[in-house]
Amino acid sequence: MTMGRLWALTLAVILSAAMAAGCSSATAMKNARAALDNAKAAGAEEKAPYEYYSAESYFGLAEHEVQEGDRKGAILFAEKSEKFSAEAVQKAGGGAK
């Protein structure tokens, strides 16, 4: 294998890894956003305010981490937000039907 090919291969691997990592945080954010919207639609803001506002706060933190370029933090907080949204929906009575 020539040096040029080796370089190209390494770059391809690095780019793929970076894209995969970026995609996973984008997916986590998308899921968290959807879960939060679902909680709101279920009336959780009124019926399960603590859980709903926790979800909202963690989603805000996840967005902050995205802006800071901390993918790991973004995923962590997005997942927490999603978890609270799910709890909020459950407490609010199952969500929009």
């Binding site: 305010p49 603590y50 506002y53 926790s54 909202e56 706060s57 963690y58 805000g60 933190l61 902050h64 907080f77 927490k80």
Partner: peptide, 14 residues
């Protein structure tokens, strides 16, 4: 104040 409680906990976690 559920909203403030949630915010305080999230800030600490952050």
């Amino acid at each position: 104040n559920p909203r403030e409680l949630a915010a305080a906990k999230a800030e600490l976690d952050h």
